[in-house]
Simulated scan of single mutants.
Amino acid sequence: MQWYSGNQLALLRSGTEYFPALLTALNAARHEIFLESYLYKPDKIGRQVSAALMRAARRGVSVQLLIDGFGARDLPPAFRESLAKAGVRLLFFRPEHSSFAINRQRLRRMHRKLVSIDGQLGFVGGINILEDHDGPDLAPRYDYALALRGPLTRQIRAAAAALWQQTCWSQFKMEWHRLPRRGTLPAPCGDIKAKLVKRDNLRHRRAIESAYLDAINKARQEVVIANAYFLPGISLRHALVTAAKRGVKVVILLQGRIDQALLHYATRVLYGPLLAAGVTIHEYTIGFMHAKVAVIDREWLTVGSSNIDPFSLLTAREANIVAMDKTLAEALRTDIQLHIDQHATTVHIHHVKRARWWQRALPWLAYQLVRGLMGLTGYGKREYRE
């Protein structure tokens, strides 16, 4: 996928920074809005975003809202009707028709979190449309997004428009298929080189995984990864181990609290081999982590929606920004390190070796179950064969 120079990228840390920026941009939209989200809740944040979308539609802005048919399946009918009455075009990507259907296609979800406004401003990251407070005793959900201006926003708009039109076609919404003509092409406004990397089930099946592999294999000093759901296949595991063995400092920050139990325990199978190779592992513990980012050699970075797990790498539609910029990379790396220093615990090899038998058996069973499920669906046989 093509690199674009002349971009301006701003790092947004969790919902605290993302939602004010998003709402400001929605309220300033003049021509069109595309918003994609896997989750969309009718909570305080969902109501604020919806109100901004409805205001935009009422003032003549073309508003396209695409949310996932599984992740957002519980959005109340009254909420949907309010959006429709205001003129917001709402579609569900692969809507759920039966909760009990056994079909491998159900795994092909739209997991992207992407926004395009007037073709001039874009947001890409891991933050869904919902409040980031999971409980009174927990820190706000830990996540990232990027705000972008410059030539790359043309590709963000194109990606959003293409998926919108494909969904319209599949659901016979031909009256929504036609979109406004593009406005002025975005002019260079910064000095950052970046690209949009998409994963789909056609031409770009392994695009995000390949971007990670290429950067890790070229690393000379440091690989820093913060990823909430981490169960890489053989290729990525081998790349991380090989990097550590050739002297690259490899640091991984993972979810410490149990969110998705099966994946949580399956991930622990990898701790022994990674730690033995010299990889450093930390677990984020003061709240729930949702970040999907990495910094390599303090210059290459990625921020997006893709986890490093079978769901994101093998089945879902994802979108990441990959950039080359020392200043932005250092800002992201510094923030990750702050969370490691203040909000995480370090996993040591003796924790794994001295674990009780059931503490070793549970991850093994979870991993075998993940492999079995993947075998049944036909996904990832090569990458998860061991």
Rank of each mutant, 00 (worst) to 15 (best):
T334L: 04
H133N: 15
G119K: 09
Y4L: 13
I129E: 04
S306I: 03
H133D: 13
P310M: 05
E330M: 09
T302I: 09
L130P: 10
K353F: 15
K195E: 06
V279S: 01
H339G: 12
D335M: 08
K193C: 00
A56Q: 05
A239S: 11
A207H: 03
D137G: 09
M1A: 08
F288Q: 12
I102T: 14
R206I: 02
I102S: 15
P186N: 01
L254T: 02
M1G: 05
F311G: 09
L179S: 09
R112E: 10
A329C: 06
N103S: 10
R141Y: 07
A72S: 07
R360K: 15
K85W: 06
G190Y: 00
T345P: 05
P140K: 04
A329Q: 05
N320L: 12
A244M: 11
I336E: 05
R385M: 11
M110Y: 08
D137T: 14
L313A: 10
V303G: 05
P273H: 02
T16G: 13
Q120R: 09
K245C: 12
F92N: 01
D297T: 02
P310N: 07
I234G: 03
A158V: 06
I252Q: 08
V224A: 03
F34A: 11
E299L: 11
L376I: 06
S37W: 05
T327E: 11
H343K: 02
R199A: 15
Y142G: 10
L185I: 10
S62Y: 09
L376A: 13
Q105D: 13
A187E: 11
A78W: 05
L314T: 08
A51F: 13
S50E: 14
K326D: 02
Y40Q: 00
D341G: 13
A366W: 03
G272M: 09
E222K: 12
R73Y: 01
Q120C: 09
T346I: 10
A187M: 15
P151F: 00
S5P: 01
V197E: 01
D137Q: 14
F100G: 08
S99G: 14
G233P: 02
R317G: 09
I33D: 01
A361M: 15
E131L: 12
A52S: 15
T285A: 02
V347P: 02
I117G: 00
A344H: 02
I102L: 15
R108H: 12
H339M: 04
E36W: 06
M289W: 04
G135C: 09
L146M: 14
I336Q: 04
M374G: 10
A51S: 14
L39E: 07
P136T: 10
R55H: 12
V352K: 11
P188V: 00
Q120L: 10
K218V: 04
Q120T: 05
P188G: 01
D341K: 13
P77W: 01
L373Q: 13
P77I: 07
D200M: 00
R104Y: 12
L148Q: 05
F93V: 11
L90F: 13
A243E: 00
E36T: 12
D335I: 03
S37G: 10
E175I: 01
R385P: 06
P180H: 06
Q166P: 05
D74L: 13
I129N: 08
D143Y: 07
H339Q: 12
I258V: 15
N320P: 11
S14P: 06
R94Q: 08
R13I: 11
P140F: 03
L196T: 03
A316N: 15
